[in-house]
């Protein structure tokens, strides 16, 4: 009897703690989004109230869509993120296959060399990266960002993917070889489809940091026509500091795409983290 009561109490305490923290985690997002739909007066008078028929207003969104080129920023962010993910996955999987499948001189050294980048942040080399991008004329192009993010994502991708590729059965690959498939065919049509779940994990891990990065867009591609959504909203908000409607709407618009991505991929992301892909 006593133990059962103790158990009930524990369950309630656990839910209480989790609900409290969930509220702390969601509160700022909630406040920003509800206030973006209110009139200026209502934002200040009752910041915690939901928008009512009286206080509802889309004036902030109108300013944002008129003044800022958010559609262009969004498109740039999409191109950069998808382009980087494509190269990280393709190049990463190829290198991981070479390291996992073949024994050759320097295999271990190559593996360690590629793993260096997991711990050392690429930002340390920013000065020289900018210099190189200026020399090659890539500054203020989306290619500069794609290259940087590809280099940044490769080490962890190679590391995770080669772990998974070691698990692909040798019999399958050898059967392919007996059938006369080339090494390239074995990689593309036998191994790649089998490691698809691992590729998805790598993609989800890389997607959010690339989408949210402010440092490299600020330094390598600050021009208006190549601004990413993160940089674009930062600059926009900086200019409209006093226009609360516009600032709140811009923040809500910036939250929207990430939240959509998260809702679509959260299961994949959480499965990736909890399956121990990053140990």
């Amino acid at each position: 009897m006593n133990a059962a009561r103790q158990n009930r109490f524990n369950t309630i305490a656990a839910h209480g703690a989790l609900i409290l923290y969930t509220l702390i985690a969601l509160f700022p997002v909630f406040v920003i989004v509800i206030n973006s739909f209110k009139t200026r007066k209502a934002i200040f008078r009752e910041p915690l109230a939901l928008p009512s028929a009286d206080s509802f207003s889309l004036i902030g969104y109108e300013t944002v869509l008129k003044q800022g080129d958010f559609f262009l920023y969004f498109q740039n962010s999409m191109i950069v993120t998808i382009g980087s993910l494509f190269f990280i996955l393709l190049f990463g999987a190829m290198a991981a296959f070479a390291l996992a499948e073949y024994r050759f001189k320097g295999n271990t050294v190559m593996g360690l060399y590629l793993a260096l980048g997991i711990m050392i942040p690429i930002r340390i080399g920013t000065v020289a990266i900018l210099e190189m991008m200026v020399q090659t004329g890539l500054v203020n192009t989306l290619w500069a960002l794609i290259l940087v993010y590809t280099a940044q994502g490769l080490p962890l991708a190679v590391f995770i993917l080669s772990e998974f590729m070691r698990q692909v059965s040798d019999d399958l690959k050898n059967a392919g070889r007996i059938d006369g498939l080339s090494e390239y065919r074995i990689f593309f049509s036998l191994v790649l489809p089998l490691v698809r779940p691992a590729m998805a994990t790598v993609a989800v891990f890389n997607m959010i940091p690339i989408w949210n990065d402010l440092w490299f867009p600020l330094i390598l591609a600050p021009a208006e026509e190549v601004k990413t959504l993160t940089l674009g909203s930062q600059v926009f908000i900086g200019q409209f500091v006093t226009d609360w409607n516009a600032v709140l709407s811009a923040l809500s618009l910036a939250i929207l795409p990430v939240m959509t991505l998260y809702v679509i991929f959260s299961r994949q992301l959480i499965r990736g983290i909890t399956s121990g892909a990053v140990k």
């Binding site: 989790l18 923290y21 969930t22 985690a25 969601l26 700022p28 997002v29 920003i32 959010i208 989408w211 949210n212 402010l214 993160t230 909203s233 930062q234 908000i237 923040l251 910036a254 939250i255 990430v258 939240m259 991505l261 998260y262 959260s266 992301l269 959480i270």
Partner: peptide, 15 residues
């Protein structure tokens, strides 16, 4: 709970 508590992590620093 897990998904909700993870939400701030996916938001950008700007937001």
């Amino acid at each position: 709970y897990r998904s909700a508590i993870f939400i701030p992590t996916i938001l950008s620093f700007v937001i």
